[in-house]
Each structure stands twice: as C-alpha cells, then as structure tokens.
Amino acid sequence: MAPAVEFRVTRYDPAADEQPRLVSYEVEVAAADRVLDGLEYIKRRLDPSVAFRRSCAHGVCGSDALVINGTVRLACKTLLQDLEPPLLVEPLATFPVIRDLVVDLTSFFEATRRVRPWLEAGEPIPEREFLQTPAELTAFAEGTKCILCASCVTACPVVKRGTPYIGPAAVVQGHRFVNDSRDVGAEARLRILAAADGAGACENFFECTKVCPRGILVTKRINEIKAMLQAGGYVKGDAADG
C-alpha cells in the first residue's frame, strides 16, 4: 500500500455551516505527487463534495492558489515531498469564501482592471509589426508572466491589515504596460497608481515576491513604478518611500 499523508482541509458550506471547519483525510500518495494530486484523491476516493478550483495542473492557468501549510502556493506546482505533514490546506485568506477552498475573486479582478490593463497602441498602426528591440521587450517582459492567481495579494501584509491598496498584481499589470514601447496610455495608468491606495501603499515587505509562483520580482517592479511616479511628478518627493 502506498504511504498515506494526512490532509487537513478547510470545509465550509455557507448554507449549512456557521464557521469554516477543518476536516482530516488520509491520502495515499506516490513519490512525485503534487498537493493537487492529493486534493484530487480526496475528491475521487473519499468525498466528492469537496470544492476547489483547478484546470491546467502545471502552473500556467492560475486557478489553484491556496494557503498550504501557512504559505500561499499553487497546489499543482507544490510537491508533497517538499512539505512537512500533516498538510494544512486553506483558501486564500484575503477573499470571501464561497465554499470550502473556493473564494470570490471579484475584488481582485476589479482591482487589476482599474489600471487599464490593455495595450493602447500609438498611431499610426503600421501595416506590419511595430518594431521593438529585444532590449525594449525585456523592459516589460517580466510582468507578462503574471497569471492573475492572486497569491501576491493574499500574502501582502498591507492588504491583510486592511489598508486600502490596489494590490501588487495590479501594480505589476500597470508596470507591464507603461514600460511597453508600443503603449501610449502610461499617463492615465500612472495617475491611477499615484492615488493614495496605489503603488505608494506598498511598504516593501517583499512577501509578494517570495510567494509569486512565476518568479516575478514583484516588489522591485512596484518600486520602479514608485520611481516613475516621482520622476514624472505624479507624487510628491517623499510619498514613494512609504
């Protein structure tokens, strides 16, 4: 028989439960199994009603960010062999829980939309491609790796504390577009990021950078935005130091 690992999973049905509760499951695991494989085992073999989101199962779709043993991670990118059992699996703490491990991400997507996260290409539009050098691509490429999984927002101490803050993911989205040589919409985006709940709300805890499953240097990009806000006169000199 395969070795078993104890999973303690948050269960919550708003129609029936007053409080979330932890339910324990014995999960048989194989050597290279991921946390997601364990959750699938529970759903397949032990309790089909446990609710969680997942899709691609290899870290590109952004569906399965969870708090696993106290740290935000993608369940499909986290190997069981790298964790100390028993496993504690909880939903993303900063969002309202819909059920079990499923949270309401409405506020997350609304925040990212506020920075106008789309390219506004400058006129004239060429017949072929805009010319863009490899160096110009590098200036914004890292931000394009974001999969909107909301890990950074959940890990952010400023967000957790309840201080108004648009959140690290939204600032990274802004960074991606204001640094794209094809884009002409920087001014509107920077004005949004200069507001009191904008990039300046970041206090450099670096938790976002630590948890980003895509390896984006989130805090560094936020600080680059802060510097742009200062240099462009969007904020007063000391505001960006937070």
Binding site: W118, L119, P126, R128, L131, P134, E136
Partner: peptide, 20 residues
C-alpha cells in the same frame, strides 16, 4: 492575424532589428 495580435500587445520575441 499575427500583426493584429502584435498591435494588441502580444510580447513576441524579436530579431535584433526589432521584427517578430
């Protein structure tokens, strides 16, 4: 279609002279 996507913002890798 590729040029349309490029105009919308897809970050294609580039040649040294800036083409896709």
């Amino acid at each position: 279609v590729v040029f349309d996507l490029e105009h919308m913002g897809v970050p294609f890798n580039r040649t040294d002279d800036g083409k896709i």
